[in-house]
Amino acid sequence: MNMGAIPSGQERHYALVARAIAYLRQNYRQQPTLEQLAAELAVSPFHLQRLFAEWAGISPKRFLQFLSKTEARARLRAARPALAVSEEIGLSSVSRLHDLMVSCEAMTPGEIKAGGQGLEMVHGFAESPFGEVLVASTPRGVCHFAFVIDAAATMLAELSQAWPHAQHRRDDEQARRLLAEIFPTTPVRGKVHLLLRGTNFQVKVWEALTHTEFGRVISYQQLADRIGSPQAQRAVGSALAANQIGFLIPCHRVIRDSGESGNYRWGVERKLALQVWEAGKTGQ
């Protein structure tokens, strides 16, 4: 796997793109022009067009189309209703970014009750293309991946509360290396193992999500159908809300049956940014 740094400037580009997404999301029915959007962000249209396309892989105009409900419904209709065999090995190979294979291991009820006792957990803060991340891992895999939305002390306290008896050690350099594997600078095959802490139902939902296609969206109903519980949409939503491993368990790909984006614990703008970034990487 590529162990180099995350692409230079992407963190800064994301901040600008996130502001653009927030504005377009609020005003997409008016179909603002590139010039109007650039004026709102106090940048030149040329600069905005270049950075947006460089970061997301598509233009602001294309993103406006992405936001429309017609587009969302069309994407849902095109989604396959059942889990295809080709998806069962991980993320789809159509990704032009990289072929990241995600495998999972669920903790036993006894291990969960023990609160991580006997586990050595290394955590750290590092930059991703979508902002700063707190990531934690054990020798058995990544167990925590959260975009920074609160003070560092608050996020660390939440991590310690979730794993009260683990041996915690901070290593930001290891966090940077791990994020470089997850977001490589060039297309590369990689593999990440996850250590899941949840109920049997939650783990079932999360594992199904790791098998969804890169660059595609899925509804709560479709996800419930995939796990064989078509009446459990609400429980599926609760499982997504409990997800502690962002991006790698891609709850950002789940949208409402109406085609609307829906909530996201790390912010709706970031959810849309993740969706459009993946769509741009796959050429959709």
Score class of each variant (00 low, 15 high):
residue 113 K to L: 09
residue 165 H to L: 03
residue 4 G to Q: 13
residue 216 R to G: 04
residue 264 Y to H: 14
residue 60 P to Q: 02
residue 216 R to F: 00
residue 184 P to A: 09
residue 122 V to N: 09
residue 83 L to M: 13
residue 29 R to T: 12
residue 108 T to G: 07
residue 214 F to Q: 12
residue 212 T to P: 03
residue 48 L to F: 05
residue 89 I to N: 09
residue 62 R to E: 10
residue 91 L to N: 12
residue 90 G to M: 02
residue 46 F to N: 14
residue 45 P to W: 02
residue 5 A to D: 13
residue 189 R to Y: 01
residue 259 G to L: 03
residue 222 Q to T: 06
residue 226 R to V: 01
residue 198 G to P: 12
residue 269 E to D: 14
residue 18 A to L: 11
residue 186 T to F: 10
residue 13 H to L: 12
residue 216 R to I: 00
residue 260 E to G: 07
residue 270 R to F: 00
residue 29 R to I: 08
residue 4 G to C: 03
residue 222 Q to S: 08
residue 82 A to R: 13
residue 105 E to T: 14
residue 172 D to E: 11
residue 43 V to E: 09
residue 108 T to A: 12
residue 252 H to F: 10
residue 142 V to G: 03
residue 2 N to G: 08
residue 76 L to E: 04
residue 70 T to Q: 12
residue 45 P to D: 09
residue 249 I to F: 01
residue 12 R to Q: 15
residue 153 A to Y: 02
residue 65 Q to R: 11
residue 22 A to G: 11
residue 183 F to Y: 14
residue 211 H to A: 10
residue 76 L to F: 00
residue 62 R to I: 00
residue 259 G to A: 03
residue 113 K to D: 05
residue 12 R to E: 13
residue 212 T to C: 06
residue 246 G to Y: 01
residue 277 W to E: 03
residue 247 F to Y: 14
residue 26 Q to A: 15
residue 119 L to H: 09
